[in-house]
């Protein structure tokens, strides 16, 4: 288990399990996620499509779909379990504690309202709930839009989302997320739907703002490269659990879990050298996930113990945790 020194820890997800009720039974999507975010820390949650990254973050904000159940685990936000909060308390977390940026900016903005209307609403309902005057609200909005380097904020406030490009819309979403003070920002693949050069701009902007405001960031991404440029610590997720976590530098210098290694190998390099083999197989069916380590059917090193027992996350030094019997030397 990850050691938790309570003081500067904002978010602490412990052994989180989330299942979805489906036609074929329960899809056991999250299988014991452990994740911790400290104050001012930029954390990356990296994994491939369907590994449960988004489910994890949705449970943090309690915006899971109706057929989801949480059989086990807790999500502590400043020591308070989000899963047990009453609706008033969770609303307070949503309006004052945590904000979120979604992958698809055009889906996050309502096309029939102006940016201004949507932004004013965000400001009105967020923060301490104290009534703000119209001028105050507008001032805040203009300031936020300036902060995301969009020229001519007045014009932006009057325009509709359809009149802006994808990159602009994502900047507006970022502006909305930082317009009032929050402690934690969850960004769910904020650059994935954008072009490479625009994605680079958005990422640099996001990192700069988070650092300036001293916020914590959880960056959900499928790209190790993005995580490397954006974060201090990376959690690698596979099939519903964290398989490895370390400080970003350490992880890239010394990756250990067979899945992290495979993933890193699969990334085509700018330095050339041809293509790697990739990882055999595909992500498991959550209706009947593999016993033991969920990675074992795709793992080159799988041994008997991996078939039967799920390896726990264990410290291998320098805050580097790996969930693999081979690395732990106990096979």
């Amino acid at each position: 288990m990850i050691v938790n020194n309570e003081k500067d820890c904002i978010l602490d997800i412990r052994n989180l399990h989330v299942w979805y009720r489906t036609y074929g039974g329960f899809a056991e999507v999250l299988d014991g996620v452990n994740l911790m975010v400290k104050k001012g820390e930029k954390v990356g949650l990296v994994g491939e499509a369907g590994c449960g990254k988004t489910t994890t973050m949705r449970s943090v904000l309690r915006i899971l779909p109706e057929n989801a159940v949480v059989p086990k685990g807790e999500i502590l936000f400043h020591g308070q379990d989000i899963l047990k909060m009453k609706s008033q308390e969770i609303n307070k977390v949503r309006t004052q504690g945590i904000s979120m940026i979604f992958q698809e900016p055009s889906a996050a903005l309502n096309p029939v309202f102006t940016i201004g209307t949507q932004m004013f609403d965000v400001i009105r309902y967020s923060g301490s709930g104290k009534a703000k005057s119209k001028d105050e609200i507008k001032e805040l909005a203009v300031k936020a839009i300036r902060e995301v380097y969009i020229p001519d904020p007045e014009r932006i406030l009057k325009s509709y989302p359809g009149q802006l490009s994808g990159g602009m819309k994502q900047r507006v979403c970022i502006a909305m997320a930082i317009v009032t003070d929050r402690e934690l920002l969850i960004a769910d693949e904020p650059g994935t739907s954008l072009d490479v050069t625009i994605q680079d701009q958005v990422h640099r902007l996001l990192r700069g703002l988070v650092e300036k405001k001293g916020m914590s960031l959880i960056m959900i991404t499928h790209s190790l490269g993005v995580a490397r440029e954006m974060t201090d610590r990376i959690y690698v997720m596979y099939a519903g659990s964290i398989v490895e976590t370390a400080e970003t530098k350490v992880l890239f210098k010394d990756p250990m879990h067979p899945y992290t290694l495979g993933l890193l190998e699969s990334v085509p390099r700018l330095t050339g050298g041809g293509m790697a083999e990739g990882i055999y197989g595909r992500i498991p069916n959550y209706l009947s996930p593999p016993q033991g380590c969920r990675f074992h059917p795709r793992c080159r090193l799988a041994a008997e113990r991996c078939f039967e027992e799920k390896p726990p996350l264990m410290d291998v030094g320098e805050g580097h945790y790996v969930a693999c019997f081979w690395v732990q030397g106990v096979i």
Binding site: V196, Q199, D200, G225, V226, R228, F252, R269, L270, T271
Partner: peptide, 12 residues
């Protein structure tokens, strides 16, 4: 374009 690519190693 090249400068915008997120990469995974120092050599890159």
């Amino acid at each position: 374009l090249l400068s915008s690519i997120p990469v995974v190693s120092e050599e890159e």
